[in-house]
Design a protein around this nucleic acid. Structure first.
Lengths: 157, 157
DNA sequence: AATAAAATCACCCGAAAGTATGAGAGGAAA
DNA sequence: TTTCCTCTCATACTTTCGGGTGATTTTATT
């Protein structure tokens, strides 16, 4: 309770205490130097110096800090392939069949026609037919071109 | 000349002028209130107030403004493909040469060995040698495998 | 200057890829 | 049912690719 009040009015209390100290100081100075002529000027000077310091201290304490906003650019690297969505419009416009897309995907994984045939349980000749149709529909000459184009068109990840 | 000097010592001149005004004020106050008893306390209070203000003003002028830094993270989703950086470590660990990487890149674009040769102004046989070395270094059998692996390793976009 | 690595080119051979053509089975739509 | 499309498979042929070997020239590197 008391500590809370102290915390809240910390600055005020400090200021009060400082004033008390000053009053004492002034009295002491008065007693000490009042006998001298021109002691008043000294007294005024001391007051001036002390209160100048007080003003400086006050300004230090009370001025609000300027807020500087620093914008840090954080690059987000999306997980490659995790955001793949098949471009079905392109697929339809090319007239690609399911089986052909399947072959195309395995092609892109670097499989040979032979391997693709084994994977899909069909003969090498069948895969050759498929790949020929794929190249025809995609208007390319080689499987590497088909892969490159398919990636560009969003047919494969 | 004079204006330059004034500009350079602006703060000092201002301070001097202010002191002059204060001296005048003090004299005036002395003349005005010296007849009253306890006028000294009033005088001291005025000095205290004035010099407190002066201190505050000085502090404002002379201290560097406090800066509070607020960090705002700005998330940037880079244009896919525009942020490609070559994985040079992988490149070095595979022992790939500049020329070989060049051939690999053109391969990935779907060019035939013949076309790559034309593009690089070398013979088909040279490209064959290069591609053989590429496959050997990358430990693959086909160009499609090389392309797939190169993309995974960050050798090509 | 000597050495090593990279780049160039050639030839041969076999494997893989691609082209052309034909054809049968099954499913969907007219 | 007929027609159309997809998927399947086959044969024959051409082109491209990839492996192996060897050689010359250029370019670092020491």
């Amino acid at each position: 309770m008391i500590s809370k009040l102290f915390a809240k009015n910390k600055t005020n209390l400090l200021y009060g205490a400082l004033l008390g100290v000053l009053v004492f100081l002034l009295n002491w100075l008065e007693l000490r130097f009042v006998i001298f002529e021109h002691s008043f000027e000294i007294y005024a000077g001391v007051i001036a110096i002390i209160f100048t310091c007080l003003g400086i201290w006050l300004a230090m304490k009370l001025t609000k800090p300027k807020i500087e906003t620093v914008v840090v650019e954080k690059h987000i690297y999306p997980d490659p392939g995790a955001d793949f969505v098949l471009n079905e419009k392109e697929l339809a416009s090319l007239g690609m069949s399911k089986r052909e897309l399947e072959v195309l995907q395995l092609m892109a994984q670097g499989l040979s026609n032979e391997e693709i045939g084994s994977r899909l349980f069909v003969s090498l000749n069948t895969i050759k037919t498929h790949s020929s149709k794929i190249f025809e529909k995609m208007d390319v000459q080689r499987r590497t071109q088909a892969i490159e184009k398919a990636k560009r068109l969003g047919l494969i990840p």
